[in-house]
C-alpha cells in the first residue's frame, strides 16, 4: 500500500492512498489541528466527493475505532477457525481488586485455563502482556479460551 504525501501550502498536509477495491481515500491535516477525512469520487478521481471535518476528539475516536479493536477482530477470526474458542473483552472496573496489581497475581491461567492475550489501555494495545504487567482501572483485558473459562476470568477480575 503506497501512502502519498502532498504539502498544502498555507493549510497543512494531505495523505492519500487507494484501497484494494479501488476507492481512493485521504486525510487532510490542517495546521490548526482540524482533520478532514476525504473520500474521492469514483468517476472523477481528482475530486473529493466527501470531506468530513473532524476535530481532535473525533479524529482520536476514529483512530480508536479503526485501530484498537482490530486485535479483537483478528482474534474473532481466529476462534472462528478453532471450534469452541472465544475471545472476550473484560474491563478492569474501579471496584476490581486487581486495579493496580499485576497480571501474575491474578493467576488467571492456572485458575481458569483461559489466556490473557492483550490489554487495551486508552488507544494503546499491549499485546502478550507478561506476568509483571500492572493493571490500571479502565484497562480492557482481552481473554481467549472456552466459553466457561473466559467467563470465569471475568468473575475473577470483577470480584477476585
Amino acid at each position: 500500500m503506497d501512502i502519498e504525501q502532498t504539502a498544502l501550502p498555507g493549510i497543512g498536509l494531505k495523505h492519500e492512498f487507494t484501497t484494494r477495491c479501488g476507492r481512493r481515500i485521504g486525510i487532510v491535516s490542517h495546521r490548526t489541528g482540524r482533520r478532514d477525512l476525504i473520500i474521492y469520487d469514483q468517476s472523477d478521481p481528482d475530486r473529493a466527493c466527501e470531506a468530513v471535518q473532524l476535530n481532535d476528539d473525533e479524529a482520536d475516536a476514529l483512530v480508536e475505532l479503526l485501530g484498537a479493536p482490530r486485535i479483537v477482530q483478528r482474534l474473532n477470526a481466529l476462534h472462528r477457525e478453532v471450534e469452541g474458542l472465544v475471545s472476550v473483552q473484560i474491563p478492569i472496573t474501579a471496584g476490581s481488586p486487581y486495579g493496580g496489581r499485576t497480571l501474575g497475581e491474578t493467576r488467571a491461567r492456572t485458575l481458569t485455563g483461559a489466556s490473557i492475550v492483550a490489554v487495551v489501555r486508552g488507544d494503546q494495545v499491549n499485546a502478550s502482556p507478561g506476568p509483571e504487567f500492572r493493571f490500571d482501572p479502565g484497562d480492557v483485558v482481552v481473554v481467549v479460551g472456552s466459553q466457561d473459562s473466559t467467563s470465569a476470568v471475568a468473575d475473577l477480575l470483577a470480584q477476585g
Binding site: T6, I11, V28, D46, R47, A48, A51
Partner: peptide
Amino acid sequence: GWIGNRETPVVLSLL
C-alpha cells in the same frame, strides 16, 4: 470542499 481535491496543491502552489 475542494481542499482535498488533487488539483488543489497545484492551485495553492501557484498562489
